[in-house]
Amino acid sequence: MQDETELAERIARVALGQSRHVAKILAGLNNSPPPSTKAAQAAAIKLLTVPEGKETWHRDGWIFQTMSWLVATQASPSSLTRAPHMILAHKGFDGLQLEIDQTTGRVSTAVIFEDKATSNPRQTITGEVWPEFKLLESGDRENVLTADVSALLCTRPDVDPDKAIENIIWKQVRHYRLSITVGSQDFTSDEGRKQLFKGYDDIAIGDVTRRRGEIFYVEKLRPWMKALAGKTISFLSS
């Protein structure tokens, strides 16, 4: 998705609560958008507006989580990918994606997302992401994961949720996807990315498919996010 105007429109649709419509577009379906109300537009604009005197971190974090969802949904349209939370600074998982084994009917892969819009990527990874993934590997919040998986499976009436979640107690079924912003080209080379994600294999051991790492390169992160939010609000206002 190279066009920022198109990106802003899709973020706006998600902010309106129309993630299902956006997912259909990403899957290649050409359908008309659902109607929206003035109240929904106002709420979406509020979601993307930073209150006077407040930091932009929560707004920027939500936008980046939505961008991460867009990429993950487009890359794997057959998977079940949870739409972004509509509450800023939600304390749950940043994202969740499920792959269902068509033969057994069980969850074959549960991908837990960590999406970080930051100007200090390596420090954020070592100080925030690795500790979170380490806790999840130890079984922490397994009840939350089970509940979130069950809720997501409710969108698939053809899948038996009780049967589907049997596999998620096994570590190899739990995969991790870290998406992070970088503002230095030092991290865009193969060697730079190795340094950025150094230690990942010590946290989520096993096959490399359990460890996904993605970067989004943008210089001057906060001004870029502000401009993108402005384009999104303009679309909503029109």
Rank of each mutant, 00 (worst) to 15 (best):
S78A: 13
Q185T: 15
A229H: 10
K46G: 15
F197H: 11
K198M: 08
S78N: 13
D148H: 12
T103S: 14
R122H: 13
V111F: 01
D148P: 10
A147C: 05
R82P: 00
R177E: 07
H21F: 14
S78Q: 14
R212Q: 15
I203T: 15
Q97P: 03
D101S: 01
E128R: 13
I180T: 10
A89V: 04
A110Y: 08
F187M: 09
S108R: 13
A40C: 06
A43G: 11
G95I: 10
S36H: 12
L48C: 04
G61K: 08
C154E: 14
K163A: 00
F113D: 11
Q102N: 07
Q41S: 05
L178E: 03
G192C: 07
A147V: 02
V149M: 08
A151Q: 12
D160G: 06
G199I: 02
Y176H: 00
Q123H: 13
K24Y: 00
T66P: 05
E214N: 12
K54N: 08
S19W: 04
T232D: 00
T5E: 13
N30W: 03
R13L: 07
E132A: 12
I205D: 12
S79T: 00
I112Y: 06
V129C: 14
P223D: 07
K46V: 08
Q172E: 14
T118G: 06
D140H: 15
S76H: 14
G127R: 03
T209L: 12
W224T: 14
V159Q: 03
N143G: 15
P34D: 10
R82V: 06
E132T: 12
E114D: 11
S32Y: 01
D94P: 08
D162K: 02
G213F: 14
Q65W: 10
G213V: 06
M225I: 03
T124Q: 11
I168W: 02
R20N: 05
L70Y: 01
V50I: 15
F216T: 05
Q41E: 08
F93P: 07
S78D: 14
V14F: 06
L196H: 13
H175N: 01
T155P: 02
I169F: 05
I87N: 10
F93D: 02
D202N: 14
Q41Y: 01
K116C: 03
L228E: 02
W69M: 00
K231M: 12
I165E: 11
W57T: 09
A43K: 15
A75Y: 05
I205G: 11
S68H: 13
P121C: 05
A83Q: 03
N167G: 07
I11E: 09
A151R: 12
P51F: 08
I87R: 13
M225E: 07
E55G: 11
V111Q: 03
V182C: 06
A83E: 11
V14D: 00
D190F: 10
L135N: 03
W130I: 08
E55M: 05
A164F: 01
L196M: 14
A117E: 04
D148V: 05
Q185F: 02
V22N: 06
A72Y: 00
L152C: 04
T49N: 11
G17I: 10
A110Q: 00
M1F: 03
T49I: 05
